[in-house]
Each structure stands twice: as C-alpha cells, then as structure tokens.
Design a binder for these strands. Structure first.
Length: 353
DNA sequence: AATAATGGCAACCGCGAAAGC
DNA sequence: TGCTTTCGCGGTTGCCATTAT
C-alpha cells in the first residue's frame, strides 16, 4: 500500500558536516535532475543524506538566488510589520523578501527582532506596549478596551466590504495608489514621498489617509505580486504604507514629516509596529457609540441562543473551502474572520467577562 | 590564558495536510 | 476508501564564534 519510502530518515541522516556534500548536491540539482525529486536524488546519489535533508540544505543554503548578506533595516521593518499582521507564518513572510528563506527570517526574529522590540517596551507577541498590557491586566474583570477594539475592527471591515461603499471606494483608491506606485512608477523620491509620508503632512494634503484595510490590501497585493515572480519590482519600494506616527520612536529621531527620507536613510518608524487603536480611524470611538440595534444584537449573542464557539478546525476548514493560497492568505483570513463573527457573534464578547 | 556565558546561525525534528497507491 | 509516504511548515536543538569574567 502507498508509495514506497524514499529513505529512512533515522538511518540516513548524518549530523552536520555538509561541506563535502554541497558540491554533489548542487551538481545533482543543477545538471542532472533539477529541483523537486529529492527522494530520487537521495536514492541515486548515495551521499548518505535523506532527501529531506538535502532539500533543506538546498533550500536554505545552496540555492543560487539566496542572499548571503545581512538583513537590511527595511527588511527588518517589513518582517516586524508582517509578524504583527499574520503572526509567525515565516514562509509567507519570507516570500515577501527576495533571497531570504523562512529559516533566515525565523532566526532573525528569534535572535534579534524579538529582543529589539522587548528592549523598546513592546511585547513581540501582541505588538503592544508592555505598559498597555499591564494596564489591560489591571483592568481584568472589565476589559472594555479589548472588546471595543475587537468589535470595532470587525465592524470596520464589515462596513468597508458591505455597507459603506464610499469607504470601500476610499480604501480601493488607497490600494490603487499603492499598486501604481509599486508597479508602474520608477523609484523616485517623489513617489515614496507621496505614499509613505504621513497623513498630516501638509505637502500631501490631497492624499487620502491610509487605513487598516488598505494596509491589509497592500499586504495582499505584495503577496500576490511575489507569486508572480516579481518580488524585486515590489521591493524597490516599501510594500506597506507607513501609518501616521505622531510620537517619536526610541530608535528614530526623525520627524514625521520626513518619514520617507528617514526610510531612505535606513531608519525605521518603530511605533508602526504597535498594534493599537492608532490603526483605527480617529472617529472610531464615536462610531462605537452609534451601534445600531441590529449591530448590538449581533454582538450580543447567537441568534439561535446557543453559545457555541467555533474551533480552529472550523476556521481552517472555512479557509480551505475558499481555496486559500499564500497569495490571498490575508484576505481570506479577514473574510473568514468576518464570516465567523457573523455566524458566532459570541466570539466578539470578551472572554474574560 | 583559561573558563563560562552569550549570541547567531544552521540543521534537526515533529506535526499535519496533501498526494499516491 | 484507507493506508502510507511525501512535503511544507514552524519549533527546537546543537554547534561555533565572540565576549566577559
């Protein structure tokens, strides 16, 4: 039954000391068999390596298009932003970084970025300031902020997609601006200035503010673009718009009006890595108080009276039925979340209540 | 100079999903 | 349809170089 085994990992695996096999592996891949048949390679080569090990070695070290130099501040910035958005999906994050592997990204995160954020007082898991986390724990039993933000975020997305055509148009406009900047325009200071400068910059008063939805759409676009094998076209620019940051960050002393210049100088707007209400539109709190009766009912409990909470499996199943690929992961995730909250409104309730 | 502690990196390993038989 | 292997992914481990004591 089933396929014959390609190898026995326990028997064939040799620890380390790859140097002697690297040349053989490269030759085998580039001249004889190409990429994708590692089991055959392991059998025929007789190098004593499991196909899986050889594949990993090739993917992480030997592939000719891999970058050998260290990560740039821009790359680090992007990794942090993507981690804040999608968590530790290293393979997806690595797809946005030409010449980097998921292992590289993961190692960078574990050894450097996590510590850097912690040193700045930002929790690397939640991307919130430690002070806010402590405050939230201090408010245990109440947790108004968490619930507010959760419901607000979801409602914002719902509104953008369903009931607020002007908002959707606005978001699409941002997305199109970003799209055209990334793909069509040559890299110029003007283009970066236009897109990355913050909303309060008087020189860009006509640019619509960049909202959360647009950010996620931009991420989606970058992911898709990378799947069309043009990561360089995207990466000549920052794939994610820089949101407004009114306070100076610990590592960047540049003013907000010179955001694009600071980026060009390898400086980073670290406060962008905070997942906070700053992402939400300024009038959001007002909108929260204007919940319609229907919306409040939806947020209040399941219509059938049950209090069932969907499992991770439900979520994954829902994702898979949409034919989710990495290219539309973020979009599918948002869609699923949206749907999940529609079907299981009890989720929007604070779990600590 | 010797040893311990630390950091960075590469490789290993287990799990779950997909695919083949 | 069920069993088995393959593959991709992410967490963990171990080695080596550097720094501190």
């Amino acid at each position: 039954m089933g396929r014959p085994p390609c190898c026995n990992d326990k028997v064939h695996n040799r620890k380390c000391n790859w140097t002697e096999d690297d040349a053989n592996t490269s030759t085998f891949v580039s001249i004889k068999h190409g990429i994708g048949n590692w089991a055959t390679m392991s059998k025929k080569s007789g190098y004593g390596r499991c196909g899986r090990s050889q594949k990993q070695r090739w993917t992480n070290r030997l592939k000719p298009d891999l970058k050998q130099d260290s990560f740039t501040p821009q790359e680090e910035e992007l990794i942090i932003k993507l981690h804040a958005t999608i968590g530790s999906r290293w393979s997806i994050i690595a797809q946005q970084l030409a010449g980097r592997t998921d292992n590289d990204v993961k190692n960078l995160w574990n050894t450097k970025l996590k510590k850097k954020l912690s040193a700045m007082g930002i929790d690397p898991v939640t991307h919130k300031p430690f002070s806010q986390i402590l405050t939230d724990y201090g408010n245990i039993g109440g947790f108004p902020k968490a619930r507010t933000r959760f419901v607000s975020l979801n409602r914002e997305l719902k509104g953008a997609f369903m009931s607020r055509p002007e908002q959707l148009q606005h978001s699409l406009q941002n997305f199109q601006n970003f799209n055209s900047l990334c793909v069509k325009l040559p890299k110029t200071e003007a283009s970066e200035e236009c897109f990355f400068s913050n909303n309060q910059d008087s020189s860009n008063i006509n640019q619509p503010p960049v909202d959360l939805l647009s950010e996620l759409q931009a991420i989606k676009f970058v992911t898709e673009a990378s799947n069309y094998n043009s990561p360089k076209a995207v990466f000549s620019h920052h794939p994610i718009p820089i949101t407004d940051c009114s306070t100076s960050s610990p590592l960047s002393s540049s003013s907000s009006s010179s955001a694009s210049h600071s980026l060009a100088e390898n400086q980073v707007n670290w406060c962008d890595y905070l997942l906070d209400d700053a992402f939400l539109p300024s009038n959001f709190k007002d909108q929260e108080d204007e919940l319609t009766v229907e919306e409040k009912l939806v947020c209040g409990g399941a219509q059938d009276g049950s209090n069932n909470v969907p499992s991770t499996k439900d979520f994954e199943t829902s994702l898979s039925t949409r034919g989710t690929s990495s290219s539309s992961f973020v979009e599918a995730m948002l869609e699923c979340e949206n749907e999940m909250f529609m079907n299981f409104p009890c989720l929007s309730e604070d779990p600590f209540y």
